[in-house]
Amino acid sequence: MSDALIEVFGLTHYFDGPAGTHKALDNVSLEMVAGEIFAVIGPSGCGKTTLLNIIGGFVDPSEGEVRVHGERVRGPAPDRGVIFQGYALYRWLTVQENVEFGLKILGLGRKARAERARHYLALVGLDEFRSHYTYQLSGGMKQRVAIARALAADPEILLLDEPFGALDAQMREILQEELLRIWDKTRKTIFLITHSVEEAVFLSHRTCVMTARPGRIKQILEINLPQPRYDFHVRTSPQFNAYKERVLEMVREEVGSDSRPDHMSA
């Protein structure tokens, strides 16, 4: 028995493309412990989103399996919340109704839902916008709603798919710091997909660099930066820059090698 919360065993995944079968993931194995922030970075097309989709239970892997608490993942479930780059908010619902959405499905009563939603809206600093519709909010606020919605259902694990990729640079950094502050309070296990070296190093305890297609694990690097880290000064410290440089070197090797053909013949 390992004490890992999430275990990924030998994941290989194929996609059927127009030019034949395409191998997206090649024998990916990894483990995450509870309370860890684990970032995956790699060139586009390296299968990192596929990896998240498999852990989330949205996609069945061609080979291999994912276990959470030793139980094989067979589909999406409330133990794994998701936050997408495009926010995926429900436009016909108000901010508070969006945050209550999962709680309603989970069967909570009206009063309990409202109470919990207000708590998490306050946590992300949006309580006064609770009656707005989501299309009335800025991108940063929308992503805060999505974070509150995921947190409200109290999942053990948060899966983040390039969560801040659609935001401007300032908002991205602010939300990164906010995420770390929320992590400090909740100690959720966070699996983060990103294409930003800076984001991976700033947020994660371990950063996993993936190879270009098909996606394999190139290296997993521990990021030993001082805690708590949600002070932006960390971003300009010498250690931070040293980590950034190492991760960037590995990523660049892969981006450079991405001149191989896209598809294997079936």
């Binding site: 989330g56 239970g57 949205f58 589909g75 999406p76 479930a77 409330p78 794994r80 919340g81 998701v82 997408f84 995926a88 429900y90 959405f101 999962g102 499905i105 989970l106 919605r149 995921a150 259902a153 999942p155």
Partner: peptide
Amino acid sequence: LIRVAQTFG
């Protein structure tokens, strides 16, 4: 949108 709802069961 569908996936988010699925994570809530």
